[in-house]
Design a protein around this nucleic acid. Sequence first.
DNA 1: AGTAATAATTGCTAACGTCAATGAATTCGG
DNA 2: CCGAATTCATTGACGTTAGCAATTATTACT
Lengths: 398, 398
Amino acid sequence: MIRHPAEPTVTRPRLPPASPAAIDVLTRILTSGPIPRVDIARQTGLSQAAVTKAVAPLVEAGFVALDGARGRPDAPGRPVTPLRVVAESVTFIGVKITADEAIGVATDFGATILDTEHRRMARHTPAQVVRTVQAVVAALVRRLGERAEQLVGIGVSVSGDVDTAHGIVRDSPKLGWHDVALRELLEERLDRPVRIDNDVHALTIAEQWFGVGAGDVDSFVIVTIGSGIGCGLYLNGDVVNGSFGVSGELGHLPLADQGLTCECGRVDCVETIASSAAIVRAVQAATGRTDLDMDAIVELAHAGQPDAVAAFDRAATAIGRAIAVVANLTGPEVAVIEGESVADFDVYETTVRKTFAAQAFGAAAQCRIELRPHTFDAWARGAAASVIRSFVRQEDPR
Amino acid sequence: MIRHPAEPTVTRPRLPPASPAAIDVLTRILTSGPIPRVDIARQTGLSQAAVTKAVAPLVEAGFVALDGARGRPDAPGRPVTPLRVVAESVTFIGVKITADEAIGVATDFGATILDTEHRRMARHTPAQVVRTVQAVVAALVRRLGERAEQLVGIGVSVSGDVDTAHGIVRDSPKLGWHDVALRELLEERLDRPVRIDNDVHALTIAEQWFGVGAGDVDSFVIVTIGSGIGCGLYLNGDVVNGSFGVSGELGHLPLADQGLTCECGRVDCVETIASSAAIVRAVQAATGRTDLDMDAIVELAHAGQPDAVAAFDRAATAIGRAIAVVANLTGPEVAVIEGESVADFDVYETTVRKTFAAQAFGAAAQCRIELRPHTFDAWARGAAASVIRSFVRQEDPR
DNA sequence: AGTAATAATTGCTAACGTCAATGAATTCGG
DNA sequence: CCGAATTCATTGACGTTAGCAATTATTACT
């Protein structure tokens, strides 16, 4: 047990104490609800009686409710009474920190975003970041009004090697941080429990509970495409967290073949042709027009401008190969590509799928590939999801 | 529950019924023993009392014994009484099937090999394989004598996509099998429960309990180098089993750079320069001497013959890169290379480490690399380890 | 010898989940 | 329209299990 400098003084919502099995039950209601007790029993292997007993205190405390919709039509027997989580019963805040801004969201129990707040920072020293996060949280809390009373905790995600248990950012190249006790710094000012997490890890948790994994998928991969390229693994029903806090360095697999040198000093990293920054660079170089930004390039590509299309195509090839590598190694059921500009572009999708199919080995080729538009808010929502999960599991939210 | 055609008629050893926590206790005794109760309590988070209660029936039944060595010297207080598993209390058989032979081992509870039996096959049809396995098992059982009465079950491992729960080989390219109900076929003739498993999966289980993972490592990677190249992942305390039964296709990552075409039809697969077959091919081609086999080449390499050294060096480079890819994606604590001819070759090891260090990203570079000689028996031992694990976990051994 | 320290055991208790019986709410057949 | 069949949900008794706290066991140190 670790002593915390600023024990929160505000009373916050608490789940009634629950056994591991009961937590499992609540998790199913949250991620697969509305769901009747029978189905929960079948899925968890518990008896119906156990489910009933687990659910009772949750309903009593107002976290779970009977869903209006009843019954399985045209089936004999007593109709089911589906259970769902009471979305309004608790509130969470998630903040994603980048080098130049802090992005905050407030969510309900179901990770639905209620409000957002972006705030730019001139610098990203720990002190400046703490001030900015504080401002973001303050704005969200103010606008939450009454609902701020249900605020359980605040999740903060950063890229790099994060020690969640101790709330320390061990090493974040993008921020230039090393061993920063971020949780301590924030809790001194926020009066709420703070949970620090790696950004990709948090996003993977969000997908696990509120995205692809919410159904019955027990292994998937997410690939995030932005200025960099990241990768989150969910295998055998667990989010993979490299033993040193680092994993998912998909962007630096040496699978590109253009001979470009990466920021990291090596050649042919996937990022050199597949990140959004790389796409912009490539199109600018090919056209000689340095004024083009991503939006303009997407427009050009949709219009069929050859340089733009070619850049997306090369990027898609690299991503397809990268996913094939991951799939060949780990055999996930689904791979989700979360990209800002690439998701609604047909040529991109086609090339990714084609490349993947050519490179995937045997049964790994059965892996489904989904493309999905990705907003910056999703990162912040991930940070919130991490807090939601710790809340449900009754871990110390930190 | 599935009905089995040949329910074994021989009574075989059974563990006293145990709760999950008690199974955890036994697992620690098996994998980390001799170990005193206090340490088990600390590691599992159970109370000492619970450990005492869990251990009692196991000692009673003769599966666990108090270790002779006592005490922690020079410490006050009552000395510890370490517990160990009674190696002789049970016996297991594991058989690895390749295209041209069946390799069997008999082991005790601690997966120590008691006896081995190899038998070659002219063909590898299911019928022929069943006959050969039967002969291998019969020979082992005969030589086991009295100890055959303690035989719990027989593990059989094959490469490819295996459905262990149903005992079916879904797809094995090397054997040319498709949906073969191997367990059923074998149980008809063996009068003992049979467990079918993927070979790499089984080997990973052996490493988890009786190899690198036996201490307190909770994520590692094994890379097997032979005629092909495989990869087993143990992450977050669980053996990764691709959702389609396939994973670990490390040999076909496109990381070689010699432009060689692989059996699989693609170019630059790691296997094209790093498998033992590839090394032999390369040296034969370079020297023009088609009479050279692996043993001869290893000798040449040790003697410093340039072509041989270069071939090993290229192979080591590819393996180093491949491990870096896996480590960057999953962040294991240890990577074990199990190779038949490469393990005791300094130049190989040096190049692997150097390449890995250059390619590993950030904290992933902390991954330890171990080289280890690998015998064919290890595959069969893996099959036995898979049965040992199912026995301890009180799963239906199939 | 007595004290401190650590390990192991014991009985008591509380928590939890299953079982089996009961109650609840519907469809369907006559 | 009523009862039989069917499925879902609840209840209370029971058994298992693990923690707690007190007790016993065995050593080192003074």
